[in-house]
Design a protein around this nucleic acid. Structure first.
Lengths: 262, 262
DNA sequence: CGCGTATTTTGAACGGCGTTCAATAAATGA
DNA sequence: TCATTTATTGAACGCCGTTCAAAATACGCG
């Protein structure tokens, strides 16, 4: 039955239209002023039609978050394909995360909001499993890199499973994103180059895991060098060189003369 | 003028009443069904009176989150006072965090929600600075432990400032809390004892930082032993021994027979 | 104590939003 | 062509955060 297929295609296309429009509206006026009526109106549909696709406003937001994370997955997979040691590739995943966060900050804000219990619990089961399934490839990359590292003897498994070893860098990244997006918090505590620090701590953690080859000098410039290599290897074309490095540098111009160590 | 002081006291007392009531209502019916009208009614005040204290509903939620984090700060300071090496004390901070998260899960849910941009931006400047200032003691504990460790030669500073070194464990904890509270996510990925893993990764990270004394065998049982000592040293009286250990153990009963390493 | 003024409290009213559903329109197929 | 199913519409509903004019209370002073 060709008509059914066509209908399904049209339905999917309309859903994409709704989501794209919602994204545009959020980018323009912020998450706060997004309303179901506005989304529908901007697409020349009635409000009720939205509910053919999304069980609630929260459901739409989760769908949008999932859609936007597609780019993230892509960047992740690209990073995982870096031609280097397993340790380099694991490091590259964190850089991909940082890069994506800077290129698409609204995604993290949205995701943070959506993963809140108040919002999450108002979404449909179908959307939730969809969200989890779409993120699975990232998880598989982590697993596969860890597996290879253990197999090749570069990483002692200590009786831990593959993802259990990969969950450290994952939580480091996630935590730092959360801090960065909590407006005013890091500046209050005078922490000035969060993502540079993040990558240094990733290296510390990888060293602590005994992930070979160990790095002797984990300095800001070491991280910058490594990021430079990664840019040449996988991230050119996705972002410009300066942009990536500015991310890691100190935002506080007075910091060069800083004397107190607190 | 004594009356002014009395008035201020009464005003503060009423604010506490509002916040306590809001907390009670949230515990009973969840964050979703909390309304300003219900809070006011439960205290036998008119809705408008609430707005003498809080500029918006979000403002109230932030105030509540700040209030609840008082216990967290207390637990943190207690942990920091552990009689052990600087490394032990740093580790103890993470355990305090885990402990608090388990004793007061609604705090983390609330905090996560409040730190969302959509909510945060609807709070008053005064509340935001209050929130940051109240959390300062925790930050000071971290700084002071790191400072002492560096001074005593147990931790190479690598040109990093005190809090820059402490931000790693901080983000690890924060990230893991976020994962734990994203309902269904960890079970989907089959990560079964998040907090046990967190503490292992804290040890990995501290090793990677070169924080002496280094730990050779970072196993689940090593962590359990360390937690046991901490419980005897500082956390008895705040929680029961079993509760603390159950937190770190595997929640999936089938895991003992697990064969695949993914 | 009494009275005028300042302050606080009240809760109905307002506006906006998410969601629903009876009415309407479009599509389908015999 | 027309009956029937399916999809769309948008006004209506209920709920909620917020406001503000009116009522109540507290205060200062003679």
């Amino acid at each position: 039955m060709g008509t059914q297929e066509r209908k399904a295609r049209e339905f999917a296309a309309r859903e994409d239209l709704f989501l794209d429009t919602a994204r545009r509206l959020i980018l323009g006026d912020g998450l706060l002023s997004l309303t179901m009526a506005r989304v529908a109106a901007a697409c020349d549909y009635a409000t009720g039609t939205l509910y053919q696709h999304f069980s609630s406003k929260e459901d739409l937001l989760l769908a949008l978050s999932t859609l936007m994370s597609g780019d993230r997955v892509e960047l992740f997979c690209r990073a995982a394909g870096f031609d280097g040691t397993t340790r380099d590739r694991m490091f590259a995943l964190s850089v991909a995360d940082v890069l994506f966060a800077s290129q698409c900050p609204e995604h993290f804000r949205l995701a943070q909001y959506v993963f809140t219990e108040a919002v999450w619990s108002a979404t449909s089961e179908a959307r939730r499993t969809q969200a989890l399934e779409r993120s699975q490839p990232m998880c598989e990359e982590v697993r596969s890199i860890v597996r290879q590292a253990v197999d090749e003897g570069d990483l002692p498994d200590r009786g831990l499973r593959n993802l259990d070893l990969g969950v450290g860098p994952w939580t480091l990244c996630l935590g730092m994103h959360t801090l960065v997006h909590a407006d005013g918090l890091l500046s209050f505590y005078d922490v000035n180059r969060p993502y540079g620090l993040l990558l240094q701590h990733i290296e510390f953690l990888l060293n602590g895991l005994g992930w070979k080859p160990l790095v002797d000098d984990i300095s800001a410039s070491h991280v910058a060098d490594k990021v430079e290599r990664l840019w040449r290897g996988v991230f050119h074309g996705v972002c410009d060189r300066e942009g990536l490095h500015v991310l890691l540098s100190d935002l506080d111009t007075n910091s060069t003369n800083r004397t107190n160590r607190d």
